[in-house]
Computed example of a mutant assay.
Amino acid sequence: MEALLSLSFDNLSSYDGGKIRKGLRQVEGLLAQICLSTSAKSTVERRRSSIVDPGKEPPPRKELGELGQDPAFREFFKLQEGFEWNVALRLVNCLDRLMGRSNDGANDLLILSTLDLIQGILLLHPPSRSLFSRELYMNHILDLMEPVNCPAIQSATTLTLVCALIDTPQNTRTFENLDGLLTVTSLFKSRSTSREVKLKLVEFLYFYLMPETPSIPSAIATASVPAMLQRSPSKLAGAFQLRAETAGRRRADSESETTKTIEEKQELLGRYLNSVDDLVADLRESTPFGMVEC
């Protein structure tokens, strides 16, 4: 696994579009091997089956709760704990270079592929979300939501932002401090924004207004693993146990982490959007995303 990661990282660090595309595909292939169910058939049998019946559905995805018990995933998760093999860091640095290139269709496709992989890695390895507590990386997300970018990138960036903020109030505070709410609401109110993007932004606003829980890494570091696992959308119980095993060597920071209530976030959002009261009322009534009333 280290050899494959090293090869993909070399390609991702290139300024050549072809090599970057190859590196993205290598990362995607690795994540696919981890997330797709393995059949009892041999590799040769599976390949023969796909040739004979090309319309056959691909292997089903593993349930998120099953990943924690998978040896390959546990090895991957452990590698992500270190700087050298962290995929999220390499992807956001690759995104930085792509954003500095000329805007064209080919580059836009590379940005979209990078955003998709960032979404996946943040869900598979929640501690990597801490990268977006840094203003540099959060600014990348906000820059990609600017009107100059195409609707596809704006939509993908909105989803990436959600993945970066799940269960990480510290990231949400960084988002707010960088006028992220202004960026989101300005894009939403712009007449040039496509309907698809506006729908994604509404979904994001519902998500933003939800009650906050402590960050997954902080909660584990303070030995509250069982409770956090029940609330975690990723449900990677086995993987989080790996985090718990090394938590004793890390400083718990949950005491310094600030969460905000729905009312506090409602007041903030209300500075930029008039219909916040309706959003909150609907949020409390419909309880989307399995929201628990606080």
Results as ranks from 00 to 15, higher is better:
E66P: 04
E66Q: 06
E66Y: 00
L67D: 05
G68L: 04
Q69Y: 05
D70E: 12
D70Y: 09
P71L: 09
A72C: 03
F73A: 10
F73L: 14
F73N: 14
R74S: 12
R74W: 01
R74V: 10
R74I: 04
R74N: 09
E75P: 02
E75W: 00
F76E: 10
L79T: 00
L79K: 00
Q80T: 00
Q80V: 01
G82S: 15
F83C: 05
F83P: 11
F83N: 13
E84F: 00
N86Y: 01
V87T: 13
V87C: 05
V87P: 11
V87K: 11
A88C: 15
L89Q: 10
R90S: 11
R90M: 08
R90N: 14
L91S: 12
L91A: 04
V92L: 02
C94H: 07
C94P: 13
C94K: 02
R97E: 03
L98D: 01
L98E: 01
L98M: 06
L98P: 04
M99T: 07
M99S: 05
G100K: 14
G100W: 01
R101T: 08
R101K: 15
N103M: 12
N103P: 04
D104Q: 08
D104I: 03
D104A: 05
D104E: 04
D104T: 05
D104Y: 01
G105N: 08
G105H: 11
G105A: 03
G105S: 11
N107I: 13
D108Y: 02
L109I: 02
L109T: 04
L109Q: 07
I111Y: 11
L112E: 06
L115C: 11
L115F: 04
L115Q: 14
I118S: 06
I118N: 09
Q119N: 14
Q119Y: 03
G120Y: 01
G120R: 14
L123T: 06
L123H: 05
L124C: 08
H125N: 06
P126Q: 09
S128G: 15
L131Y: 04
L131H: 00
L131F: 07
F132W: 05
F132G: 13
F132N: 15
S133N: 10
S133P: 05
R134G: 00
E135S: 12
E135C: 04
L136D: 07
L136K: 15
L136Y: 06
Y137D: 03
Y137F: 14
M138D: 09
M138N: 07
N139C: 09
H140N: 10
I141W: 07
I141G: 13
L144W: 01
L144A: 00
M145G: 02
M145E: 07
M145S: 07
M145P: 09
M145T: 09
E146V: 06
E146C: 12
E146R: 15
P147D: 09
V148K: 15
V148R: 15
V148N: 12
V148C: 12
V148H: 12
N149C: 05
N149V: 00
N149P: 00
N149Y: 02
C150V: 08
A152G: 04
A152R: 14
A152D: 07
I153C: 11
I153H: 11
Q154P: 10
Q154H: 10
Q154K: 14
S155V: 06
A156D: 07
A156M: 05
A156N: 08
A156Y: 04
A156L: 03
T157K: 13
T158H: 11
T158C: 15
L159D: 12
T160K: 13
L161V: 12
L161I: 05
